[in-house]
Amino acid sequence: MYPDNSKISTRETFLSLAILLVLTSIGAVIFLNQFQFNPAVVQSLTGQADTIGQRSPPVNRPVDALIHLPQNVSPLTPPEAFTPDNLSDKINGKAELYLSAGFKRLDSQRFKDDRATDRWMEIFIYDMAMHANAFAVYSIQQRDDASPGDIGRLSYTTENALYLVHGPYYIEFIASEATVEAIQTLKILAETFIRNTPVQSKTVAEPQLFPESGLVPDSVAMIPADAFGYSKLDRVFIAQYNLDGTGLTAFLSDRKSAEAARRVAAGYYAFLGEFGGKNITPEDSMKARSPRIVEILGTYEIIFTLGPYLAGIHEASDMNRALQLAGRLEKRLQDIHNGR
């Protein structure tokens, strides 16, 4: 009835024991590991406590200043710091704009002007890692009715605020009131900050690549990602033009190689086609390196490449004007490309 154990070899016995040992070890590892949840699970279970637990010390407590302060200005609340993980805790839905542009860190603090009880201000120092990234968030948010800030080349003021780029930093100084005194205080704060924060001198080259004729002053902006809704079109510079009363938007992006520029251009062209864009490029131009013209939703999109540059005109209402501007842009890029 029972197997004859004498027929089982020593080898079989050891092999069986080894298999049992391995199985027991696997079981033990699984048993121990089931107490250690994936960090994502832990986060979902305890995130509430993490975020709700973030509280600043009470207002009015003596606190350190985030930046060197001029006379008559003192901290109102403690400094705060935010990383990509919690930036939205501070600026909510606008966080995505900064994150897509290479955001690294935000330091902020509120100050009060000791000469006026109701006058207070907040400084937001966005470390964008690179000067071009700082320019992107600066330019994309630039206010239409701004006045020159007179603090460096990239700065402007509005009734109650001062905005500027300093090296890799994009900085907002926002006052609680729209008065001359408040703006003066903001400017002193900004100058003090710049004086005490040395950075490498850098400029963004692309704004100088657009032809000057018809260019709307201070209209060049950089779209860091998802330009015109196309996910592979990033780091695109746009410029507004006024050609005899017709408003146009020119764009260009340095893709670093001619092959990369052609590839992204082809992708964007196909993307427009997916959304109903119709190729209306004249037949005789298709073989040449002429711009592609796409009609989409009653507007015209012109796309061309020149060396590493992908460029064109976006959502033009007048095709002839758009072609005229595209020609100027191409010539300008050609001159620069030849001089490279």
Partner: peptide, 11 residues
């Protein structure tokens, strides 16, 4: 514009 934080009266 520039919502939801804004920051400038010009927004």
């Amino acid at each position: 514009s520039n919502g939801p934080t804004g920051g400038s009266l010009s927004d």
